[in-house]
Amino acid sequence: MANTTQPLISVKNLHKKFGTLEVLKGVDLDVQAGDVIAVIGPSGCGKSTLLRCLNLLEMPTGGSILLEDAFVFKNERFILKAKMKAIPDKKSEEYLALKTEYECLKKEEKLIEKTVNKTINIHRQKIGMVFQQFNLFPHLTVLNNITLAPIKLKKCTKEEAEAKAMALLEKVGLADKANAYPSTLSGGQKQRIAIVRALAMEPDIMLFDEPTSALDPEMVGEVLKVMTELAKEGMTMVVVTHEMGFAKEVASRIIFMSDGVIKEENAPKEFFENPKDERLKEFLSKVL
């Protein structure tokens, strides 16, 4: 179990390639319990990819991810592989030593991969995710959207799940929509339901991927309000967002991503008032 100083999630040197396109080029990130991290950056820089790697919706191609002290992903042998390639003499002592190290690491990492393949669903239960496009289940009522996973995964009985769902719906002001179908709801309502659906699994951390970007402007506020309350209650959150106001007011840390790496990371005040990275300065001048 994680103690207070141990990060909830620890990402090291994370790489992700789609074919030949390298989207993440070595991301390091520690998320402590209670952190609210806002991730900003230009379109296509890999924000969504990073978030999706955290709950393994995308499999990274290199680096490591620790969730509560347990590896959920580890592939560090690719670094050794590159080093080996750089050595021309395949019989040199240096090469052979690397090779031994590589084989050893490969064994360990394959074992992790095997274990994680079996436990991936348990990891994901600890990580809630909210999508830009809501992704509610259109064939189920709001209540069933929320209780499906807790019931099927035997987290609790149907009655308990429904009581919990109703309490959460009450909190976001949508208790009267329990028996409605998603298609009858506005975007803001859908997104609040999506947040409740993730919360119903009692996750340790919540990931948000541009939760307000698909909303009409007048509905952004109601969703941000729910997220702000959640942050105040101490929920650990990683939020990809273009809402600079939210980042400034609510986040405990802000991360600027560009070209597949984290270029700058700071507390909100310092981040906005005293940006150091040139790309960040340029980015802020555009969005502020």
């Binding site: 709950n55 919706l57 669903n121 348990i122 990891h123 994901r124 239960q125 600890k126 990580i127 809630g128 995710m129 999508f131 496009q133 992704n135 509610l136 289940f137 499906l148 996973a149 099927k152 995964l153 999506a194 659906r197 993730a198 699994m201």
Partner: peptide
């Protein structure tokens, strides 16, 4: 069916079989 449905199911921790069957 939109791929987002697969992802939403997976992100909740449902198994692939459960995602297929119920979503």
């Amino acid at each position: 069916v939109d791929d987002g449905q697969l992802e939403a199911g997976a992100s909740l921790g449902l198994t692939r079989t459960q995602v297929m069957l119920f979503i």
